[in-house]
């Protein structure tokens, strides 16, 4: 098998009733199930594809772009700026748009706080670039240590105005973070994603033992001021080569 990289766009998974029926599943379960459904549909079409698209999203056909709010969360585990840029560019292309209203970066790594901060600065420079040309409006970070967040905030040219924390089970917000967000008009938002949305062993299970995830995006498209979720899906870039990059 030739090594290649694979891009998957799940399309609007709200049209898959299997996913809704299991209301209590977490993001990882939902993602695995979605991938299985989509890959199953693709199997007959050969194994050497580089792009897999799920069901075409028809839910937004008759909606004015200005009535939509696109929210994107990028899951990455390396501070590679090109990888992040590619992820964002794929998102713009997938939604046929020049702007994304809300972006959250979930950067997961085992670095020391100092290294983490310097990685985040690299990542944040990309975010700033896109904000400066009005391609992004609200921007922020997920599951970040309060001190690291404050340091990044003070360093940043374009300040993050979102910080996302996992509150799936309890209502305890770190007081320092609470205070800082209040003083600086930062949205303190919640999420319920597992700390690793697509663990390596599951990835290998689905895509083979050498699979490697460059980046993963989860997007939600809301109808503004109506509290309606009209589309939701995942975009991901995977490497299936024999040698890990």
């Amino acid at each position: 098998m030739l090594s290649h990289s694979l891009f998957i766009n799940t399309g609007n998974i709200l049209s898959l009733s299997e996913a809704k029926q299991k209301a209590s599943q977490n993001s990882t379960d939902e993602l695995i199930e979605t991938l299985k459904i989509i890959l199953n549909d693709e199997q007959s079409k050969g194994d050497d594809k580089t792009i897999i698209n799920g069901k075409k999203d028809t839910s937004l056909q008759d909606v004015d772009r200005k009535d939509l709010k696109i929210t994107v969360k990028v899951f990455i585990s390396s501070p590679d700026v090109n990888s992040l840029k590619e992820a964002l560019d794929q998102a713009f292309e997938a939604f046929h748009t020049d702007t994304i209203e809300s972006l959250v970066i979930a950067y997961k790594s085992a670095e020391s706080p100092e290294d983490m901060l310097s990685s985040l600065k690299k990542i944040w420079s990309v975010v700033e670039e896109y904000v400066k040309v009005d391609k992004l409006s609200s921007v922020g970070l997920s599951d970040i240590n309060t001190n690291t967040f404050i340091e990044l905030f003070q360093w940043a040219d374009i300040k993050p105005n979102i910080v996302q924390i996992n509150l799936a089970t309890c209502c305890v917000v770190p007081p320092a973070l609470q205070e800082f967000t209040k003083e600086n008009d930062i949205q303190l938002l919640t999420h319920s994603d597992p700390c690793q949305i697509l663990p390596q062993e599951i990835l290998e299970n689905i895509f083979g033992s050498t699979a490697y995830l460059y980046w993963l995006i989860r997007y939600q498209i809301h109808l503004k001021c109506r509290g309606i979720l009209s589309s939701k899906g995942y975009l991901l870039r995977i490497n299936k080569s024999n040698v890990k990059p």
Binding site: A23, Q25, T71, T190, H191, Q220, G227
Partner: peptide, 19 residues
């Protein structure tokens, strides 16, 4: 699935503020 689990599933997609 239950109405409350469905509400929770919806909420997970809505980026709700902490309070």
């Amino acid at each position: 699935p239950g109405l409350v689990p469905l509400v929770n599933s919806y909420l997970a997609n809505m980026n709700v503020d902490a309070d």
